[in-house]
Design a protein around this nucleic acid. Structure first.
Lengths: 237, 237
DNA sequence: GCAAAAGTGTTCCAGGTACACCCATGC
DNA sequence: GCATGGGTGTACCTGGAACACTTTTGC
């Protein structure tokens, strides 16, 4: 058998891994896939970059495959690139002699979509981030997830990304819960109201109300920017 | 002729590019190399990642080759990874069929070291960032430089990276000039004093004085953290 | 009425900005 | 002395934190 590609240089496989967050049951969740083959265990969803595909496009494709969401409808930010020589030893032996460099991406979904049993019949499930960080992930995905959580917490401060966790119209109490879950601490409801209402480019009122059962009905809001645009990219492509 | 490496997958070449900043003549400078071969023009210093080398190690090696500074003595932060399929077309033709993915890094030097005429006899020179951004760079290096400047400006706010632009002991006026040059605006000298003195983890007094000719002599300070440690990495490896 | 959740008002404090002012040197 | 740059004091403003209080619903 012959190999269609040949090189005078060592082979690098380039992959993308996606850290996909959502909120459910009052805690931050991450989509992970169960690996049957060695190394067995849980891992982040990801895959090879196609020959003529931009890095961002590869991440969008992975995201769409896992969630069924149309590419371009979710926020997607480049996190970092991980390429220690021994981070994935699966292809080190002949004939590939390849090491794997992975570009990690960060995204947010407004709800727990049922993971698609896609072309690769992946067994993707949502799990609480806290549990996953405790039990670990294969490869260096534990580190990637840690970095992703830190980035998400930081970006909540100065981008409207929190709105990407919510679908359609939402109350400020629901938005506040996003911040509380991601930051792991409670916020003052009154101060939160003012801050979000006054801030430009986060939410705008719809004029409609919704009652949550008991208590005064809440005003409803929608995001000022599309979910896919909550992050202004600095680097990618 | 045979090629030692073969693959069933398309070939990716993985490189590192380094955006190296310094301050001279009252403006922000960047180290660029002149390319003789096509595409001719100015480019960022960079090169291939070696087979058994971590990405960070490759960036440190490039940095050391260009500056002569010992690896590990300079701050080095991963910026982003750039991998558009057409960003470097030099190897697209047979037999390589390779595209190039580049991991960009950001560093700061305390002075204009004479660029080393290293093994590759590179013709590296320092040039003002403003000029370079105006005239452009080859490949997508213009975009990388823009992203790097934005990152540097942001990090100045909440990391002690400004001290990495200065060698040995320095006055607060010298440190203030770093901020003024990078941010492109003047700062109030009095307020700057207080803020930097009060802030933890930026500078500590040496107790010595230095006269700049006229006026009251200035107290001298040294960085609280080593230049190589001014950035706490979130992602790399 | 009472409980609960939404939303507003008010007070306090920390940190930034503007700018007046004093200090220590060279000439 | 005067000019020059280093360094301090102070008044003002803004934005966040704490928390009392009012509004609007279900029961």
């Amino acid at each position: 058998m012959t190999h269609p590609y040949a090189s005078d240089y060592p082979i690098f496989y380039v992959t993308v891994d996606v850290v996909l967050f959502a909120i459910a049951d009052g805690s931050l969740q991450v989509l992970v896939v169960e690996r049957g083959e060695e190394p067995a265990g849980w891992a982040l969803p990801g895959g090879f970059v196609n020959p003529d595909e931009d890095l961002r496009d590869a991440a969008e494709r992975e995201l769409a495959e896992e969630t069924g969401v149309r590419p371009g409808d979710l926020p997607l930010e480049q996190l970092a690139t991980y390429g220690a020589p021994d981070r994935d030893t699966r292809y080190l032996k002949p004939p590939a002699h390849a090491r794997v460099v992975s570009v990690a991406w960060l995204s947010v979904l407004p709800e727990l979509v049922q993971p698609q049993a896609g072309t690769d019949a992946s067994s993707a499930v949502w799990r609480p981030v806290a549990e996953v960080l405790e039990e670990g992930l294969t490869f260096d995905h534990h580190r990637i997830l840690r970095d992703a959580v830190a980035r998400l917490q930081a970006k909540l401060d100065y981008t409207p990304v929190a709105t990407a966790f919510l679908a359609g119209e939402f109350s400020l109490a629901e938005l506040r819960e996003v911040y509380e879950v991601v930051w792991g601490r409670e916020l003052d409801p009154g101060n939160f109201q003012r801050k979000v209402r006054v801030a430009d480019r986060i939410v705008e009122p719809t004029g409609r109300l919704r009652s949550s059962g008991r208590g005064r009905p809440a005003e409803l809001f929608r995001p000022t920017v599309r979910a896919a645009d909550v992050w202004r990219e600095t680097g990618s492509g």
